[in-house]
Design a protein around this nucleic acid. Structure first.
Lengths: 198, 198
DNA sequence: CGAAAATTTGACATGACTCAACTGGAGTGG
DNA sequence: CCACTCCAGTTGAGTCATGTCAAATTTTCG
């Protein structure tokens, strides 16, 4: 079944007994979305922890002038969504939208709290996940501050080749914090230099 | 004693029994630093989780050209240091240095692991802390992408007035991702407009 | 095929950086 | 108490990275 993905992901960090797996599985709900559908909308409280089983999503912020800023992508076997809204149960500042047909598994806030008490190992699991996520966010900020856009783009293509192939360029530009026009410019520079130096 | 700060901070999120407090306290070590001393140096493995009791520290990255980029400040009652290095026990990419005379409480990696098994509540505590930290990192990235430097600076002064007063300007510039000269420029613009419009 | 979405291109504008010189404390020591 | 130095902050001229806007082109897909 589709729950295997999540359960494996958890078991990898924090081995689970069969009973624990069953308890967790009992709280999981499968959900299907079409391309373009919103999983979470700005202003709503995010009532679910969301794990992407297949497909891909993006989480973005809409600024006053109506520009989109991509906060994060979510692909197979990643947790996604507005953690801040979920953990404080306050209105989300971000939108999470499906880039493609997407299947997720989710856990409601109340079920999650109950799970934490029934399977305390999950606290450890999410602590570990969050440590890694926090570390990579930190590095992302530092890169934004210390590397020019061209290098950031190259690094991104090396780090997440799947994402580069699968999502439209303008979203990658937004994730990197540059305009789509400028990314286009960068790409043409890169393809020029990769051709001979005649 | 000086351990009260940490223990209170933990108890606030995750109420502790007296016995649990004692177990935790038994692993805590107090440490004093002078202005300018390093708590963690790039390249070393960060073997301690560090909590600032008094004073202030900064964590920064040194890029290839030798420029400093401030990752985070740490002030009273904040956890600080290179989480990534600590959690993976690999060499740190960042330096953590005291801006002033500073007192910290720390827990070694091994003790921390042992604590997690003796006082599982700590997993929950750090999960909660990390959720908040991750959320604020996310917002920091989005602000960098969606607001011009002047607004970011104003927001920073409103959010962390203590830090603005206590640390040198050039560090704040670095934290915001701009040069000290440009921050100086911004500040003079701000003080001009606050004076009459003659 | 045809329309909408994504990407590219180019002219022009600007926010932010660099570099270098200058100002103004805060020690320090004679 | 002055002279000297050191460090933080300021100022200004010139430059560069990246943004804006508008149009052209290519790709996607019903």
């Amino acid at each position: 079944m589709e729950y295997k993905n999540v359960l494996n992901h958890i078991s990898n960090k924090v081995p689970l007994t069969e009973e624990e797996e069953n308890i967790i599985a009992s709280k999981l709900k499968l959900k299907h979305y079409l391309k373009g559908q919103y999983i979470i909308q700005e202003g709503d409280v995010n009532r679910h922890q969301v794990f992407v089983v297949s497909g891909k999503v993006r989480t973005f912020y809409l600024d006053q002038s109506g520009k989109e800023h991509i906060v994060a992508f979510g692909i197979e076997n990643w947790w996604t969504g507005d953690i801040c809204s979920f953990s404080t149960q306050t209105p989300a500042e971000f939108n999470t939208q499906c880039i493609d047909k997407t299947t997720v598994v989710r856990i409601s806030y109340d079920d999650m709290e109950q799970l934490y008490s029934e399977v305390p190992k999950l606290e450890r699991y999410f602590r570990i996940i969050l440590q890694a996520a926090y570390g990579s966010m930190t590095k992302r900020i530092i890169r934004n501050h210390s590397m020019p856009a061209k290098e950031r783009y190259v690094l991104f293509t090396e780090t997440y080749p799947e994402i580069v192939q699968q999502v439209p360029q303008y979203m990658i530009a937004s994730y990197l914090g540059i305009t789509k026009e400028f990314l286009s410019n960068i790409r043409s520079q890169l393809s020029d230099t990769s051709k001979g130096k005649s």
